[in-house]
């Protein structure tokens, strides 16, 4: 029930409330950023992954407000499964016009995977043929940071990382997301 409601919501917002930009502009801009990072860090791909995640995190901290405003969200998700639905069917839909598949839940409902059938960031991309990029670079790692930052602002501490990427020759592009904890409300400082 929640699933179809989320898709309808995502679809409706995408159609009515979103300013669209040329996708190639986004793809090429993102590609330029990654290429520049690779250059700046001398092909230290582990560091590039880290930087992309950090950039994503800073984007996520702000993007969540736009998400809440556009989706008119007035209440919290009642559980992490609902959160996953909203991420995949509303969040990814309205910002990237894709809906990754939610799968591989652990039995405690604290970990799931997003499988990306299509990944607009990776259009036209071929990883460098230096024998290391294929094993070390997570090209779309910015998305992990975005999720981490956005969820932190709505009081969920999560960990997100890619476990496979079609750019590396894997069969799928899959991101693993784990809920670490719910963050408590901050309390005002005690008065003397």
């Amino acid at each position: 029930m929640a699933a179809s409601k989320a898709s309808r919501l995502g679809e409706e917002i995408w159609k009515t409330r979103i300013d669209k930009v040329n996708s190639e502009l986004v793809v090429l801009t993102y590609g330029t950023i990654v290429a520049q990072l690779v250059k700046d860090f001398d092909s230290d791909y582990v560091e590039v992954n880290k930087q992309l995640d950090k950039m994503g995190y800073n984007i996520g901290l702000r993007l969540i407000e736009d998400y809440l405003a556009k989706s008119n969200t007035m209440r919290r998700c009642s559980n992490f499964r609902e959160t996953a639905e909203m991420i995949a069917k509303v969040g990814f839909k309205i910002f990237l016009n894709i809906t990754p598949t939610i799968t591989n839940w652990t039995s405690d409902s604290k970990q799931f995977s997003l499988v990306f059938d299509e990944n607009p960031l990776a259009d036209f991309v071929e990883l460098p043929d230096d024998g290391r990029a294929q094993d070390e670079l997570w090209y779309s790692n910015i998305l992990c940071g975005v999720l981490r930052g956005a969820l932190e602002m709505v009081q969920m501490q999560v960990e997100a990382h890619f476990i496979s990427d079609m750019l590396r020759g894997n069969d799928t592009t899959e991101m693993r997301i784990s809920l670490l904890r719910y963050i408590d409300d901050e309390l005002p400082p005690e008065d003397d």
Binding site: E65, L68, T73, R75, R76, M153, V154, Q155, D185, E186
Partner: peptide, 9 residues
Amino acid sequence: HYYETVSNL
């Protein structure tokens, strides 16, 4: 009047 966003604003 009070309004709180999901992001605790």
